[in-house]
Structures are given as structure tokens and as C-alpha cells.
Simulated assay, not measured.
Amino acid sequence: MTAADRPSGVPGTAPGAGCAADVGHAGADSGTGPAGTGSAGSASGRGRGRMGAFGMVIGSAMSLQFGSAVAALLFPRAGALGVVALRLIFSALLLLAVCRPKLRGHSRKDWTAVIGLGVALGTMNSLFYQAIDRIPLGAAVTLELLGPLVLSVVASRRALSLVWAGLALVGVYLLGAGGFGQLNLAGAAFALGAGAMWTAYIVFNARTGARFPKVDGLALAMGVAAVVSAPLGVVSAGGALLDPVTLGLGAAVAVLSSGLPYTLELFALRRLPAGTFAVLMSLMPVAATAAGFLVLGQSLGLMELLAIALVVAASMGAVRTSSS
């Protein structure tokens, strides 16, 4: 995704603030230079740490979107729903093994939040993979981004937010003017549906994060998402899911789309303010366009590229407005 996998109330924030969040913050945030003395050394250390964090966020976005591109290559083998099932099952196994969340001692409201998050996760990924089976990856991520963008605009309640909403609408109009017939209306509808579920994911993730330590709630929700998606994947792909090559590529997709991004985002969030992180993650459509071009051979015209740029700018503006 997206984000396939993202928490918090702004576009593009990620669920990677993770299982090892209790480890002491070090490096650039410690306020000490290499020798522990001198403001110049401290400032230099913070600068290097922040630049490294920028690289981690960009690496996370590229890994996530290249994972989606590799997933699209698997569609002829197992279908979109089959690949979703593989990705979520492997991601759940990875998160549950690393985080080892407790299953006991949780209230009914705790489990309601987890189940809601898991259903949102499973539905979001299923809709998104249906979208990229029909339209270019960059266009799908651009349309999906509208979900959290709308949530950010509504939550901000500022007049300037309407400007960003208008800019995003212009971008969507240009994307359509470039030929929604070529983009495939069903694919565009699936992407918009994924964006709506991304919004639900953000809401439920906030509730889950408030009730569970670290990202234990996310790990449990990923397990729920895997259970939700598995029957659809089995019905759709059947025995193809047991093919060793398909299983291996499915595991690779889970690492590219979950394991590696979560790890990079975990370390980046220790060094960057949340607002800066969210702005950088708004570049997801750019990463998706690059992955679609390099891995899938998908190219977009100037009109579509301009449309993506406008939606990215609107997302960045909405993040800055809501966090200021």
C-alpha cells in the first residue's frame, strides 16, 4: 500500500513506531555530540541524524511501493485476492513473532478496536490490490491518498484547508481528463474505496494505539486482517497459493511492504518530528509512480504526472496546516 499500512490522523503516517519503541532514544536526539561536549558538535550530530532519517523515510516509501509492484507481478499466479492473503498472512506472522503481544487481560472495547482495525486493514489492502490490478500504481496511490487527505482537511477545520482540498480536486480532475476510461473506472473506484478504508484505519489505529502498548494492537490487528483475507484468497487462488515460487514471492512482498518499511520508519520517527515525517510520507504517489515505471513498465503522461504532483502538494499542505 500502502501504507499499506499507516496509523495516526494525518496523511501518510506509518505504523512503524514499533515493537522496540521502549528502547532508549539515541544518536541525533540525545543532545550530545560525538564527545558529549560542545553545541557545534551537537548541532552537527543532529543534522547528520536528520538527514539519515530523511533517507530512511524515502527508503521506506520506496520499499513499500516496490513491494506493491512486486505484488502486481504475482497477480497472474495467484490473483489480487490471493496475493493480498499471502502478504497479510506473512506480515502477521512477522509482526506477531517480533512483537509477541499478550492475548489476555484486554477488555471488550480493546478487542473491538483491534477487530475494527484488522477489518479496515484487510479491506483496505484487498481494495488497493484490486485497484492496481486495473490501473497504474501511481494513479492508484494518488486516488487512495484522498481518503486521509479528506480526514486531515475535516479535522483541521481551517479555511486554508479548503484550498488544499480544492487543489486535490483539481488534481483528480486532471487525472480524469487524462482519460479515466484508460485508467478503468472500476480500478479508480477500488482505489477510492481503499482511501476510505485508509481513513477508517487511521481512526481505529488511534483507538488501538491508546489501548495497547507499543504496536501490540497493530500486530494483533494484522492477525485479524490475515484471518479476514485468507478465505477470499483461498477461494480465489486455491492451490496456487501453495506453489513454492508464489509462497517465496509472497514472503518477499511481506518483507518489502511491511518488515523493512516498519523498521526504517521506527528509526526515522526517533529523529524526525511527526509533522515532518508525515510531509515526507505524502510523497508516496511519487514513489509509486517510480515503482510502476521501473518494475511494471507503466508510464503516465504529462497530465497525469501534473495531477499526481497537485495531490502530493495538497497532501503536504494539509499536513502542515493541521499540525501548525
Rank of each mutant, 00 (worst) to 15 (best):
V119T: 11
L121R: 01
S126A: 13
F128R: 05
Y129T: 07
A131R: 01
I132Y: 09
L137K: 04
L137R: 00
T142P: 04
L143S: 04
L146H: 09
L149T: 07
L151Y: 03
V154H: 03
R157M: 05
R158F: 08
L160T: 14
S161I: 07
V163M: 10
W164F: 12
L167A: 08
V172D: 02
G178T: 07
G178W: 05
G178Q: 01
G179W: 07
G181A: 11
Q182N: 15
L183N: 07
N184Q: 15
G187W: 02
F190I: 07
A194R: 01
A194K: 04
A196M: 09
A196G: 11
M197K: 02
V203M: 15
V203D: 03
N205Y: 15
A206H: 15
T208R: 09
T208M: 11
F212Q: 13
P213C: 10
K214C: 11
A219M: 00
M222N: 04
M222R: 07
M222I: 10
G223K: 02
A226M: 07
V227D: 10
V227P: 00
L232F: 15
L232M: 15
L232A: 12
G233P: 02
V234G: 04
V235T: 13
S236D: 12
A237G: 04
G238Q: 04
L241S: 04
P244W: 01
T246P: 07
L247M: 08
L249A: 12
